[in-house]
Design a protein around this nucleic acid. Sequence first.
DNA 1: CAAGAATGCGCC
DNA 2: AAAGGGCGCATTCTTG
Length: 495
Amino acid sequence: MDDRLAPRPGPGDRVGRPPARARGRDSASARRRRDALRPRAHLAHVDGGRGTTLDGRACRAELDAQLDAVAASRVPGRLRLLLAAESAGALAAAEMHRAGLPWDAGRHDEVLRDQLGPRPVLGARPDRMERLAAEVRDALDAPTLNPDSLPDVLRALRRTGLAVTSTRSWELQQVDHPAIEPLLTYKKLSRLFSANGWAWLDAWVQDGRFRPEYVVGGVVTGRWASSGGGALQIPQQVRTAVRADPGWVFVVADAAQLEPRVLAGLAHDERMADAGRGKDLYQGMVDTGVVDSRAHGKVGMLGAMYGGTTGSSAAVLPRLARAFPASLALVEDAARTGERGDVVTTLLGRTSPRPGASWHETQVLAQSDDADAGAESKARAQTRAWGRFTRNFVVQGTAAEWALCWIAEVRRRLWDLGVVDVPGDRVPAPFTGRPHLVYFLHDELVVHTPAPLADAVAAEVREAAAASGRLLFGDFPVDFPVSVGTDRAYGDAKG
DNA sequence: CAAGAATGCGCC
DNA sequence: AAAGGGCGCATTCTTG
C-alpha cells in the first residue's frame, strides 16, 4: 500500500496551537498491561503507517509462536478461532485505513464557524471563546485569569466563595453563580477547538478522507485502540461532516445492547436471552416486570457489568440478581477471581493480565501486624478495583470477539455483493464500485456503499451479526439484533 | 528544557 | 464515607 509509506502530518505538525507534548493519563500500569498482551505482529502493523516495512521472518516467527500456543492449549479450537478473528480484523483495519472515511472538510468548517466563529490566526483563541473568557474573568473579578489553567480557575472560584473541589463540568453544574454558564460553554467550545478544530482537520483529513490508524487488539480486553487523530472519539457534533461520495450512502449498523447479550450467551442465561429476543433488551426487562423503566434496566445492567455500587444502579441490582441469577453469578465470580489476584478468560481464551508487583505488595502490607487502618483501606480499595477490572474484562473482551467475527463476516459478504458502476467514482481500488467498510467503533460498523446496494448491505450486516452469534454461542438462543440506518451523512444515519 | 504526571472530556 | 469498566488526546503543572 503505497499511500501508507508517504509521510503524513503527525500531531506535532499541527498548526492551530503550539505542539502537543505529553501523552496524557495513560498510566504506566495500563500501558504495561497492553504491551504485555499485544501480539508482536501487531507492532509491525502499528509502525506500518510510519514507513517501516513488514519483516517476513518476524511474521513467520509470530505465526509459529501462535501455532505453538494453539497446540499447547486446552481449548485449541477457541484459540484458533480467536487468531483467525484477529487476523480478519487486522485485514479489515488495513482496508479501512486504505479506503478512508469520506470526510467533507467544508461541512466540518461550517460546524466550526457556527460554534466558534471564524478561524483564528495561529495561536489565538476563536472570537467566541475569547468573549466567554472575558465574561468569566469579569464574573470572578479575576482580570488575568487563564481559563485553560485548572488551578487558576479553581482558585478564582474558591476566592469567590464557591465550595468546589474541581473544575469538572458535572460539579460546576451544581453551582449557582454568574461565572458558571460562560465557563461551561467555554470548556465545551475549547474541547471542540483543540480536539477536532481546524488544526485537526489540517492534520488528519486529506483529499476528502480521514484515515484512522487502528491498533487491532490494542486494548488489554481485545478491543481496538487507535493511534493518532482520535479515531474512536469522533464527537457527535462533527459526525455530520462524514459524508458519502456522490452516488454513495452510508449504512450505519449498531449492535443493540451488545454487552448484556454477550453476557447472556456466556452465562447460558436463557431468561436474559428471552428478555432480549427480537426486541430491545432493556425494554424486555420492563415488559417482564424485572424493572419499572428502561432507564433502570440499562443502568442496572451497566452497574452489574462495570461493578457499579451506587445510586439507582445499585438499587436495581437485587432485582436483576433475582431475575437473572446465571448472568449475575458469572460477573460476580469474575470479580471474586480478580480480587484474589487470579486471571479470568474470555470465551475464546484471551486471558486477563495479573495485577502488578505493587498490587501484591499493598496486599501483603495490609496483612502485616503493624498495618494501620489506612493501609487496610487502601488494600481493600485496590482489591475491589481489580475485581471491577476482571468483572468487566470477561464481558468487554467477549464482546470484542463477537465484533471481530461480525467484521470478518460482513467483510466477506460485502465482497460477494459485487460491483456497481458509479459515475465519477472516487473510491480507491480494490473497492471502486464496491460496498466496503469505512469505520468501526466497538459495536458499530459503517459501510460506504453505492446507493443501489444499500438495502442489500443492510441485510448482510444483520445476517452477519446472527452468524457471529452462532459462531460464538452455537445453539444457545441469544440473538444479536442490529439497528441499521442509511444516509449520506454519518451523523444522520442512526437507525 | 524535556519528560512525565495530573486533569478533564470525547467515544464505546 | 464512598465505592463504575475500557480507551486517546490536549493542556497545564511538576519534576529532574
